[in-house]
Design a protein around this nucleic acid. Structure first.
Lengths: 192, 192
DNA sequence: GCGCCCATGTAACTAGTTACATGATTCA
DNA sequence: TGAATCATGTAACTAGTTACATGGGCGC
């Protein structure tokens, strides 16, 4: 897997709509792409600096009264080209990394109740994600700044990914609970 | 999210069954947990060294004729305790990171055919994963060394995760293709 | 003769997280 | 008075990847 500093492209994608600061990008990110791509300041600020050196963006310092100065970045022609090029390229699949599965794999001698507790927690967490996605969907379909956007169909596609992916996990949680319960019954039979 | 060097626990989990070398762990890993937890030599060897320093494992060098020497590691009592403690602890959820979704999110001006191609690739890749899981399932249910293992139910639970999770993605791919096709029809109507 | 397997490891890098530092304003 | 928000950043770390180095044995 070749590494490609994807944070850079997330920032370029946002700057392609309008000039913003690192702080504003974080806010934008938290409210839009965070559920499949999160970033933090410790990564955003250095990457913006690099991007300025690469001439993908230009920086302008804005003074506002009673507030710290803002470094507002704008995308350059070179930046737009780089973004477009990246958007057209195929995506490389990442490895799945699920700590929960690693634990279950080695759980032969773990009390079944402990595993069941983990599955319950996973299901609750997953249901919270699903609720969050519904809330976002409702919001972007009704908010006057987003409902008419020509990007709306693409945003809904990303939300739908979350929906199906999480629903698959819910099904797994339910089936796994059943499996664990029947294992419990078998174990208690053996102990009689 | 607190970081916990999970590779260490993957190795402890394997060593809990029997003493193995770093090279053997990699082979074990590739044939069992790789589909939800992959590791490579550049991580395994240094982690084994750290674990030896922490007295979680002991090392024994084995000479075999005509083969390079092997460093075979065994788990210690301290290692078993540490593994058990980790197994009982709750799991912290990781952030999803899906480059494909990031691209789609910003794809307003990307030709729909390009996006469709990405979805096709995703679906094919996902189907390959599903086939691989079926193959592993068939294998561990029939192989004489695994079919009677008391860990078998747990291995099947991890495989079932992959199944449901990937099936969710297949559904998303199918729905997304339909969405993109209807967007294409609308666009070609507008161009008439 | 070529490539793969066995076996261990290091070097150099990118990615990502947590904690820390600063200092003003606004709101409860 | 204290917490939250605005705004930028660095330091120190852990996690993870790729490329490189070594060298014998085995099968085609």
């Amino acid at each position: 897997m070749s590494l490609t500093n994807i944070t850079k492209y997330a920032i370029l994608g946002a700057l392609n709509y309008m000039p913003i600061s690192g702080y504003d990008f974080k806010k934008f990110s938290d409210h839009s792409i965070a559920y499949f791509w999160n970033d933090n300041y410790a990564r955003i600020y250095p990457v913006l600096k690099e991007m300025e050196e690469e001439k993908l963006v230009t920086r302008e310092t804005m003074q506002t009264e009673g507030r710290p100065a803002k470094n507002v970045y704008s995308i350059t022609e070179k930046g737009r080209k780089e973004l477009k090029k990246w958007l057209l390229q195929p995506v490389e699949e990442r490895h799945l990394r699920e700590e929960l599965l690693l634990k279950i794999f080695f759980s032969e001698h773990v009390p079944l109740e402990n595993i069941k507790e983990k599955i319950r927690a996973k299901k609750e967490q997953t249901l919270r994600f699903l609720e969050e996605y519904s809330e976002i969907e409702r919001h972007i379909k009704t908010d006057e700044y987003t409902k008419e956007s020509s990007s709306l169909p693409f945003w809904l596609i990303t939300l739908n990914f979350g929906k199906h992916f999480r629903e698959g996990i819910i099904k797994w949680c339910d089936e796994t609970m059943e499996t664990l319960e029947s294992m419990e019954r078998i174990r208690s039979e053996l102990n009689k």
